[in-house]
Nucleic acid binder design. Structure first.
Lengths: 329, 329
DNA sequence: TTGAAAGCGCTAACAG
DNA sequence: CTGTTAGCGCTTTCAA
């Protein structure tokens, strides 16, 4: 079917191994020869056959990504960035929407060079050991089994940064949106840190409503609940971008303006925070940074360079105009 | 690294070509021999090497799916179903989040057996001809270039069914939520059909607000706008599941009950329609049916069986309790 | 019914 | 620098 290196070799009048070398940009081929070969390859629309290459080189130049069952916007953006990053290093990214274990099996048969698993509370637990694969696996999003390396955001520090910021601005009563109860350990960690910070800083709680999910509608619901209290807080910290969207809707509807009437800060360091009116003070690890980090670690794992067990990424605080000094009333 | 057929052959005391046959369940191998080989393969945790297999057989048993840039819930469910369907036929599904053309190139190198493209208004236009691949490509979601087969829902008929239903219930004033203006041809078709139906049935328009997107929040906004009118409609037809979610929020908030105060019907035939309170009358092609159809067509394309140019799936109306006779007032 | 052997497209020694 | 050659793991004739 497709064009092979033999076709190119014939047309260029060289041996096909020379073509192979030239295509891989080997220094063992003369510049002119190389150029000529490249040109012919281009002309013929040559596409290397992954199967053949990976069969002999034991390397597929493919990274498999296990896509989480629940998809939130930030993850979607993150995966796109990781893909781009890897592409620069000649790797192709391929996704699977299967359950973690069967996805890993598929990737195994593909002989992918590494696997990235986006894990969330929704996907089923599984035994990594049982799979016993020698393909390096990197997890994102949760402290896992100590078997495979994990990349995660230092959520605790992020919340601390945010509360600290609001506290410095003089806020004495704050609410938090993003409490999913005990079932979700990721969110739980943020909630607990928030509570600890209130105590430590001597701040009164303005409510930490229990949510049913992380969609914008839940942020809307929680926001309404908080501002309708007899004595509402002067600042609200939201646990995610989507929740913040809903929160803004509730505030807007109630005729409250930010930051005059209330200060808003949000977890999730995504560019979209700037699209709010006003731009939202946010805390978290910039998505580009996470993507770069993930790509870099994957590459190191592929190269067999030793990697740490856990990478806890440091969050950053980006102060914008949605937060300001509390007005004494 | 992995276990190969040679390992199995050695352990079973047969030639490796026999193992190959046995594993493919060939009739050329005796039952007992076959069983023995199967058992050993299982025991050794044998995983066939896709690269090798596809190299020689010119078939990868992989179907590539080009994931749309904008992801809506229904598509996510659909892709999962298609995957399941294909899995039963021994095919593995792999996704790419790249732009259509580069995704197709990647799949080409993988020698996938077929490509499924979920197309939406957001992903960039491209020239299929330019790619000139001989891998069969199936599009979903829009009338395309007449080069490759397309599967699509008969949106026109769907809207007709819905309006007809509401009209029969005596509604004389209806609103439609889902108008994205002229930029989105898919939505445009539904809007236009709705308008035509109003004329044909002598129904008054209760508003067809222009939206900025298809998220739930837009449904909420439009819903509020519609019910706040001086003389609101007695029925609303929503253009998608997400919009309906937002619409319900708006109705709930305004203290309107469905279907006592207003009848609601929605496009998108997904199971989640039953989770509303009350369950929502919906119209569209059941997602399982779409998935089955897509999988079947892909399989036929792989087998070189000739397929039609366009498959326009017939929508179904599922009447639930969110719609009822108009109350004379 | 089983085994031997060729070869898919490519990379990587090794020779020249 | 360029060419020759041996496989990678598997399927598939062709022989036995």
């Amino acid at each position: 079917m497709g064009v092979t290196i033999k076709d190119i070799a014939k047309k260029a009048g060289v041996s096909y191994s020379t073509v192979s070398k030239a295509l891989r940009d080997s220094p063992l081929v003369q510049k002119p020869t190389k150029n000529k070969i490249m040109a012919i390859a281009e002309e013929l629309g040559y596409q290397p056959n992954i199967a053949a290459r990976s069969l002999v080189s034991k390397k597929s130049w493919v990274v498999g990504v296990v896509w989480p069952s629940v998809e939130r916007m930030t993850l979607s953006a993150l995966i796109t960035k990781v893909n781009k990053e890897l592409e620069e290093k000649q790797y192709t990214t391929v996704l699977s929407i299967n359950e973690i274990d069967s996805a890993i099996q598929t990737f195994q048969r593909f002989q992918v060079d590494a696997i990235l698993v986006f894990r969330d509370q929704a996907n089923s637990p599984f035994e990594l050991e049982a799979l016993d694969t020698n393909i390096p696996i990197l997890f994102y999003g949760t402290q896992s089994d100590q078997v495979s390396p994990v990349v995660d955001v230092n959520r605790k520090k992020a919340i601390e940064l945010a509360v600290e910021h609001l506290s410095k601005l003089g806020h004495k009563k704050m609410a938090y949106i993003g409490n999913l109860g005990e079932k979700d350990t990721l969110q739980q960690e943020k909630v607990q840190t928030f509570q600890h910070m209130l105590v430590r800083k001597g701040i009164e709680s303005g409510g930490i409503p229990l949510l049913n999910g992380l969609e914008a509608s839940e942020g809307y619901r929680a926001g309404r609940q908080i501002i309708q209290a007899a004595s509402p807080p002067t600042a609200i910290l939201s646990g995610s971008y989507d929740l913040t969207r809903g929160l803004f809707q509730a505030l807007h509807e109630a005729g409250l303006s930010v930051p005059q009437d209330i200060s808003i800060a949000s977890y999730d360091h995504v560019p979209q925070m700037l699209e709010f009116d006003p731009p939202v003070t946010s805390v978290g690890v910039p998505i580009e940074k996470v993507a770069e980090e993930i790509a870099a670690i994957l590459l190191r794992m592929i190269d067999q360079t030793d990697v740490q067990q856990t990478y806890l990424l440091d969050p950053e605080l980006a102060v914008r105009t949605s937060t300001r000094h509390r007005i004494n009333q």
